[in-house]
Design a protein around this nucleic acid. Structure first.
Lengths: 211, 211
DNA sequence: AATGAGTTTAACCAACTGGTCAAAAATATA
DNA sequence: TATATTTTTGACCAGTTGGTTAAACTCATT
């Protein structure tokens, strides 16, 4: 099978349309016809390039999961000083999700409705290396800040929660902002959150051993 | 129309089955036939009691949203000392979601896929009273802990994030626990989180004004 | 120009899905 | 018991959905 330019173009068009529709509607509510329409091609062509809806979804899901995953664990892979790292992370992290606001809810929703997909994805990959590098790397800082080793995962989940949740619950937060008379919009709120979350986390860990 | 016992029984059976199916599958993937099966009745009977799928879903959604909402803002309505309040909140909050693990992702997913539902629900309700009582009530504590008034919403979102996110991303967290060699299960992790989250938040706010 | 492999399309299909309806069963009313 | 009312059911329907297929089109190679 010789892949020429036009094929790659078509496949990409389909893939991008599929990403958009799946992310927007979720698997169950997504329609193959709509994907075809947005890609500007015939519906049969979807099945020509990707055999079935499930198969197309799987490719899309893996791509988007990778996108999200690498962003989320990015912080724990950098080698800057801890506090600087935190500030920089929240800054980048929030900026990224401002451009991909539906990504968190899409990933979480699809996984919770079909956990097998996650297991299938991660079953054959060995994350020992990443884990060790991440955990080993931060060992000094952990003890320096008084975070016990067994609380390491708690801490990571905590850091991540502060940005992902507001995006996942974006509409609820927006309503809340309205109700409380916040005049600026969601984006401004999240921009302010870059600083708030950083300072909050840094304050918390600075005094963990001074209980 | 005289409502006798059997009617109420049937209606309730339908309602509970609908709650279960909708919460488990989400609106788009939920099937009226499955709801009927779980309720142990004929499918036509669904339409007899609740005209359409949309209507049945709306009732279920409102019920579940109320359930979640009252739990989430519960903390901000109590009159105990701040730190005690925080500890108690995380304890109850996590215990509650351990019994309703799908609730957060269901609410967030459905709202993000159909924000109009939220607006419809809250459009005609005046939350000024709640807002004022909550915000007015905590005014002293806010200043005492050095939380600026404009950061109040940031703080609330932060507190709530720490428990809701791990449940919404339950499967991902579980995978993460496996990967990092955490031998105990998700429930144990969340039990430990009751303490971790409390101390984390308390540490953070204790030193907010001592920057 | 003829060939042939890869690409795109229109027409079509079987299964599913929410929803209807008239009849039957159950229950209340007289 | 006879009648009216409400509850429950099975059969059915129209629209939708993922997927198939055979024919048509494109285009490089000969």
């Amino acid at each position: 099978m010789v892949k020429n330019d036009s094929e790659k173009q078509t496949e990409e068009k389909i893939f991008e349309a599929a990403m958009a529709v799946f992310e927007e509607k979720g698997f169950a509510a997504a329609r193959m016809q709509e994907i075809a329409d947005r890609a500007g091609i015939n519906k049969s062509l979807l099945h020509y390039y990707f055999r079935s809806k499930d198969q197309l979804f799987e490719v899309v899901f893996n791509k988007l999961f990778e996108k999200m995953f690498s962003m989320v664990i990015g912080i724990f892979m950098s080698d800057k000083p801890f506090e600087e790292k935190i500030r920089e992370y929240y800054c980048e992290h929030i900026r990224f999700f401002q451009q991909n606001p539906m990504l968190p809810i899409f990933i979480m929703s699809e996984i919770s409705h079909n956990p097998e997909r996650l297991k299938k994805r991660f079953g054959n990959i060995d994350y020992t290396k990443i884990r060790d590098s991440v955990m080993g790397f931060h060992a000094e800082e952990m003890s320096e800040y008084g975070i016990k080793k067994e609380d390491w995962v708690q801490f990571m989940i905590t850091v991540v929660s502060l940005t992902i949740f507001p995006f996942a619950a974006k509409e609820i937060v927006k309503m809340f902002l309205d109700q409380t008379g916040y005049t600026k919009g969601f984006d401004d709120f999240m921009n302010e959150r870059k600083v708030f979350a950083s300072e909050f986390v840094i304050n918390a860990i600075k005094h963990m051993n001074k209980k």
